[in-house]
């Protein structure tokens, strides 16, 4: 690879590359590595949320209990549906809006700003607004659709509802990144395609999509990671209910730790969730990030 053929000798390469990456790694490491190690330690104990004396070692019993608990597997399944639903939805709407706003038309800058509103709006208030819009009795949604749906109170609907609300809150992130990706595609490529007589669709397939590739793979990865541990919207909207219908793994973790005070048990769920994300990430990076990584 040409990448190895840099203008610097090898030891210098190492030094420069390390000097560039270490500051970021240190900040992240300092804030996150210590908590992760603590959590792994706690997951092997019966620690309560707050302990005045050292907790006693419990081996892998927390893990064994969760892995044999059907609630855990159900929750994992719900988490996966939520994660992939949100990722696919956010990406699709993000791509659509990015393509639209990358076209040349008057007032584009203003619309590019406005499309970010869902993302920029404070989450606490946005979720409460949704909650009210979706209210069975007084909600504008049921009123406009003439429907009588318990969007957040019916266990058959709730998971779809929280997925849609999360997509709505998150898609502008995809819009911004994809828009930037589109802007970085050299215009010459389109001009060349034009000269070759390529149709709009052909241009999209042969110029736009390959041009987005470097941001695509990363964007999807990050959407998955952020959604997998995202608790705020579900917690505010349904609290994991009704009847556990939206009880994703982060909700279990939160309840175990802060409502039931079982920090050891909560840590085990957290580490299991981390393990699943790690597997997803490794598989994904093998497939999509390899040539660039």
């Amino acid at each position: 690879m040409s990448r190895m053929r840099t203008a610097l000798p090898n030891t210098a390469v190492n030094r420069v590359s390390a000097a560039l990456i270490l500051p970021a790694a240190i900040v992240m490491g300092a804030v996150v590595i210590y908590p992760i190690l603590t959590t792994i330690g706690l997951s092997l104990t019966d620690a309560p949320l707050i302990s005045l004396s050292p907790p006693s070692f419990a081996g892998l019993s927390n893990y064994a209990e969760w892995l044999s608990n059907p609630d855990f597997w159900r929750s994992l399944w719900i988490t996966l549906i939520y994660t992939f639903g949100v990722t696919i939805g956010s990406y699709a709407i993000g791509l659509f809006t990015a393509l639209l706003l990358n076209l040349d038309f008057p007032g584009r800058a203003i619309l590019r700003g406005l499309v970010l509103l869902p993302w920029a709006i404070p989450e606490v208030a946005a979720v409460m607004t949704w909650n009210w819009m979706l209210d069975y009795q007084f909600g504008i949604v049921n009123s406009l659709l003439g429907s009588q749906v318990g969007w957040v109170t019916d266990s058959a609907m709730a998971l779809w509802t929280v997925t849609i609300v999360t997509i709505w809150k998150q898609f502008p992130l995809a819009t911004v990144v994809l828009l930037a990706g589109l802007q970085a595609i050299p215009r010459e490529l389109y001009e060349a395609a034009n000269v070759d007589g390529a149709s709009r669709l052909q241009q999209f397939v042969h110029v736009t999509l390959p041009g987005l590739k470097p941001v695509n793979s990363v964007l999807v990865m990050m959407l998955i990671l952020y959604t997998f541990k995202r608790i705020s919207i579900i917690y505010l909207l349904t609290g994991g209910g009704p009847a556990k219908a939206t009880e994703i793994l982060p909700v279990i973790t939160y309840l175990e730790a802060f409502k039931y005070f079982r920090l050891g048990s909560a840590s085990a769920v957290g580490i299991l969730a981390l393990g699943f994300t790690l597997v997803i990430t490794l598989v994904y990076s093998r497939v999509f990030l390899r040539e660039e990584a």
Binding site: S155, P242, L255
Partner: peptide, 21 residues
């Protein structure tokens, strides 16, 4: 000591009732 857990079990049950299930 386990009020939170009992509350949740009961409310999970009633949620299906309020949801018409």
């Amino acid at each position: 000591e386990y009020a939170g857990e009992v509350q949740r079990m009961v409310v999970d049950g009633i949620a299906s009732v309020w949801g018409g299930r």
